[in-house]
Design a binder for these strands. Structure first.
Lengths: 241, 241
DNA sequence: CTGGCCTGAATTGTATACATCTTGGTGTAT
DNA sequence: ATACACCAAGATGTATACAATTCAGGCCAG
């Protein structure tokens, strides 16, 4: 086909649908009609159903009573809660990692990454590259959560992070007021280092507390955004309230 | 049809499949073939696919590379982790409830339920009714989590609890050694009362710590079981390791 | 022996026709 | 006015034929 990626029609349909949902077309509560979507996406009803099922697994849709799917509604409070929950789960992941002990060969790449992150926002005076920072930040979160020995905790965390507004790098940029933003980056990076140190030193409680506090930065940025109410953040497109 | 419940073929198929999985037929890693299942369940492939999608949403199946579904594998360690995770999430739910404050009209039913639970295990000398206790215990957990103002936290907790070995009343009975078991019930009930008191008194940290420790009772019971290795617990049927 | 590549049987992916259910509206009797 | 039954349109549920993909096994060339 011409656009979107995926090897099967169902995966392409899921991709397209996901895009439309997170972009805010189809606000929360919108019912998805198989026939209409099948026409729009130019496939039959079968892959559309398959796609909707996949998005339900991701938590973007929910099954309606009497059949069919509805776009899940998220309020501003849900965004706050999702960030809190991410902090709780990352905290648990780090605590378990600390309690179990992390091998040096897995800690080394993390420390290397920390230095890369330093460079990305111009710790040496170079101009900050926020795109790059966001990417490296996401990578850092993936790596450090990878230290957690529990499949279950990791997969539930993955699930929460799949919500576009709950990902670690959801609200990093957009504040071009370089002063406050730079300070927030410095603080975040200090917490990054402390989290690694806590896991390395098997300080479970410290690691957990740090991860929770770290997630609060996202919440702060969000609340700052809400006050400024500048251009609406794309990560908030599917928020109804 | 003759057996199982549900109004559509897909729901019945999902129910049947779920039963077979949690009973331990089809151990973790088993691949599910649509045609074979369609014949066994006496429906066409379409509702079978639908059923598998639903079970994937529940976390009982996972999508295999190259299509199809596989029964999710759970190890003994996963059971431990799932119980830990339930404790963490219940703790978060209670902390948020405590921080937000719970109205008296929602606390009253909880306190009434606590008295019913007292009666169920013969606090007054009557013989303990473990069936009844397990039911009331589950009800208690539902009610107290219902105090949490966050949809997101509640729904993720619901998801974890849907794993048969992670539910609050998974390992309450089976230890007929009445002495140790009775003591564990007394402790659990004391924690129940403390959790309600902590939420009522807006003591978030206390409520969270209590919920986590409370979940450890399930872990203790499980580990005791593992040592005794008496008849295998049905809640553990789908464990592979 | 090993690597790559056929090839075909088994399996899932897709389209579509038909069956069933859900829902909202309408009419009627109370 | 209200309650109820009923109907029709539209939606999802189901079966099935056919297409495309996957994977294992054997074959051949190196």
């Amino acid at each position: 086909m011409t656009e979107s990626r995926g090897s099967t029609h169902a995966k392409r349909a899921a991709y397209d649908l996901r895009q439309r949902i997170v972009k805010g077309e189809m606000p929360g509560g919108t019912r998805l009609y198989e026939v209409a979507l099948a026409e729009e996406l130019e496939v039959s009803r079968t892959p559309v159903r398959e796609a909707m099922s996949r998005l339900a697994e991701e938590g973007l849709l929910e099954r309606a009573k009497g059949g069919g799917f509805v776009v899940r509604s998220f309020t501003y409070a849900d965004v706050i809660d999702a960030i809190e929950l991410r902090g709780v789960l990352e905290g648990t992941a780090l605590r378990l990692a600390a309690e179990a002990g992390a091998p040096d060969e897995k800690l080394e790449p993390l420390k290397a990454l920390l230095c890369e992150i330093d460079a990305s926002f111009g710790a040496d005076g170079a101009p900050p590259n926020l795109e790059l920072y966001a990417g490296l930040n996401g990578e850092f979160h993936d790596l450090i959560v990878g230290l957690c020995p529990s499949h279950i905790v990791r997969s539930e965390l993955e699930r929460v992070k799949s919500l576009p507004f709950a990902s670690p790098s959801a609200f990093v940029f957009r504040n071009r007021q370089s002063k406050a933003m730079m300070e927030s980056l410095v603080i975040a990076q200090a917490q990054h280092r402390a989290m690694v140190a806590a896991v390395e030193g098997r300080e479970g409680a410290r690691a957990e507390a740090l991860a929770r506090e770290h997630a609060r930065i996202a919440r702060q940025n969000l609340e700052k955004k809400a006050l400024d109410n500048a251009e609406p953040d794309p990560a908030l497109a599917l928020i109804v309230d």
